[in-house]
Amino acid sequence: MGFDRRLGKGRLLAAWLVCHRELRGLLFSPGTYLVVLLAGLAAHLFLNTLAQSIADSGLAVLSGAFNLPIYSVLFVTGLFLALASVTSISREREQGTLEVLFYGPVDVAAYIGGKLVSFGLAYLGLLALYLVCYALFAGTTGFAFAMPTWAVIGLSIPVVMHVVALGTFVSTATRRVRASLAWFLLILLMLLALQFSPDLLELAPVSNRFYPPLRLARIVLERINLAFTWVSPFALLIKGTEAVRRADALLYVYTTAISSCSVLVLAAGSMYLMWKGGVRS
């Protein structure tokens, strides 16, 4: 069940079958279409509002007209795929599918690899669909796809895969769908809290009696956040966006590389956990 050397080239086939199966599942999932619908509606709403505002004021300065719809869509799509990855493995384990699957010529590397590739391909497919939709809007309104928008789209691929890999990791570490979802949402909330709580603590009045401990808490949270920069997709996304804004190619490459490495580490961790934990619920 672990890393079966006898599989050889068969592992690629097995991974492709797992990937194909998962993609079919996503293709027939109503959630996928709901996400695409939301993306289209968001773009239409934002761009119409923007066009109206330019018509009223005569002028607007934007780093990208599509930035806001793209950010919202990337967030929703990333979350959808991550939740799909969280539920996918633990549900198959819970229903016994995983056990049956592993009687065949499938090992953990083929299974986890196939799953991650399927989510990556699904994201690229959805991204292509969004871009077609946005190109139609851009062609008829005159709004431009600025260079920073392309850079953010490029950055989103490893960041979304990072969240998906985190979901897969959580899913392999738990036994039940409910537990997987609960743990994943808890981790996401914790990472969000780490990212934004220092700013929230900032609102504490300077000279009230709680100020010194709150200030200390802010410093501690900032330090933890600094350490979590290496693992938090939110921190990496903010850092990458800042790199795009400042046209800092080195920071952009660094962020993309860290995100990609995190995907590999989490994938390896998922394989290890599945190998150690077994496939039974």
Binding site: S57, V61, L62, S63, A146, P148, R245, R246
Partner: peptide, 11 residues
Amino acid sequence: SDDEGEVLYLR
């Protein structure tokens, strides 16, 4: 407009 990546949209 602060940086070169920004676009000026005019009616």
